[in-house]
């Protein structure tokens, strides 16, 4: 669990981070979102004290992070960065095993853990003897992730971790990242300027501008209940696409007509509206059938879907 209480950072007369408060619950993924220069990276780096705070307090797992030795603190917090920062003179194996060495793990334990992560992150076994320059950008980023995860830290910080990758690779790694069992129990703070990525991966989003927090909330709250003009405008360009992705079939369940209970294959209402639409288009079917697991079955067409979606959206405005 991480909590920032009134944290500020100044560089000369310029204020980079101004009175930031937020709390990241255990196992939660909080994304710091904003344009370049909004203070999101500075905020992230203050958590593991790569940058020291000027004001305020940061609690990591219940302890003030300034009351701990900085090196000890960092060894317990995974860190993944955009430039990856692998050590060019270390082999991949040595790169992954940096923290265990600092923590004096025995060799067997380290080697086992390295191989375990290799499998989980879909890295080829033979890459261990390579140097970083011999791997592709995507593989390097996986190694960077493995290095951060090796000591199984409860907290993970990610600074534009997927920013340097091409679109295809980024989408793949994001999917794997989402599905990685190991990450589901970690408290993660991520920095990104990519709205799509934020909505894809975040449990909650902290939207920042000019060093200040503009809004903290779930993707749905940001979309349908913006706290201020900035929050509204920030998402306007991609609003519709984001809405389709954020809203799930189960969210609009009550607005859908009752089903005809056909015996074709049945889908899970966890699917987003976007994914449902994709299915209707790509599989060239007229209707999809969903089953909510409690005996209720609904069958819907493209029209049913858009109608229910609009009703759902409107209901937010009257809240």
């Amino acid at each position: 669990m991480i909590e920032l209480i009134g944290v500020s950072k100044r560089y000369g007369s310029a204020i980079a981070v101004n009175q930031v408060f937020f709390k990241v619950n255990e196992g939660e993924n909080l994304v710091l979102l904003g344009t370049s220069g909004c203070g999101k990276t500075t905020t992230l780096k203050m958590i593991n004290r790569l940058i020291e705070t000027d004001e305020g307090k940061i609690m990591v797992n219940g302890k003030d992070n300034r009351n701990q030795n900085a090196e000890q603190l960092r060894r317990g917090i995974g860190y993944v960065m955009q430039n990856i920062g692998l050590f060019p003179h270390y082999t991949i194996e040595d790169n992954i095993a940096v923290v265990p060495k600092l923590l004096n793990w025995d060799k067997k334990k380290t080697a086992d853990r390295v191989r375990e992560l290799l499998l989980k992150l879909h890295l080829p076994e033979n890459c261990l003897k390579f140097f970083p320059a011999e791997l592709s950008g995507g593989q390097q980023q996986r190694v960077g992730l493995a290095r951060a995860l090796i000591a199984d830290p409860p907290v993970l910080l990610m600074d534009e971790a997927f920013g340097a990758l091409d679109n295809v690779t980024r989408t793949n790694i994001q999917q794997e990242f989402k599905n990685l069992e190991e990450l589901k129990r970690k408290t993660i703070v991520m920095v990104t300027h990519d709205v799509q990525e934020a909505f894809e991966l975040a449990d909650r989003i902290c939207l920042m501008d000019k060093g200040q927090v503009m809004q903290v909330g779930t993707p749905k709250e940001l979309l349908f209940n913006p706290a201020n003009e900035f929050s509204r405008q920030f998402l306007d360009g991609q609003r519709l696409a984001l809405e389709f992705k954020v809203i799930r079939v189960k969210d609009i369940w009550s607005n859908l007509p009752d089903g005809k209970n056909k015996t074709e294959k049945v889908l899970n209402p966890e699917l987003s509206v976007w994914e449902a639409m994709e299915k209707l288009r790509s599989e060239t079917v007229e209707e999809l059938t969903f089953h909510d697991g409690k005996g209720i079955v609904k069958t819907l067409t493209f029209d049913d879907l858009t109608k229910a979606f609009n009703q759902y959206k409107n209901s937010w405005h009257y809240e």
């Binding site: 430039n83 920062g85 692998l86 050590f87 940096v98």
Partner: peptide, 18 residues
């Protein structure tokens, strides 16, 4: 030496000497 590499080393918990 690339600043990102030394920053990564720092972030992993290496001391100044290390």
């Amino acid at each position: 030496v690339d600043k990102h590499i030394t920053e990564a080393a720092k972030a992993l918990g290496m001391t100044k000497f290390q």
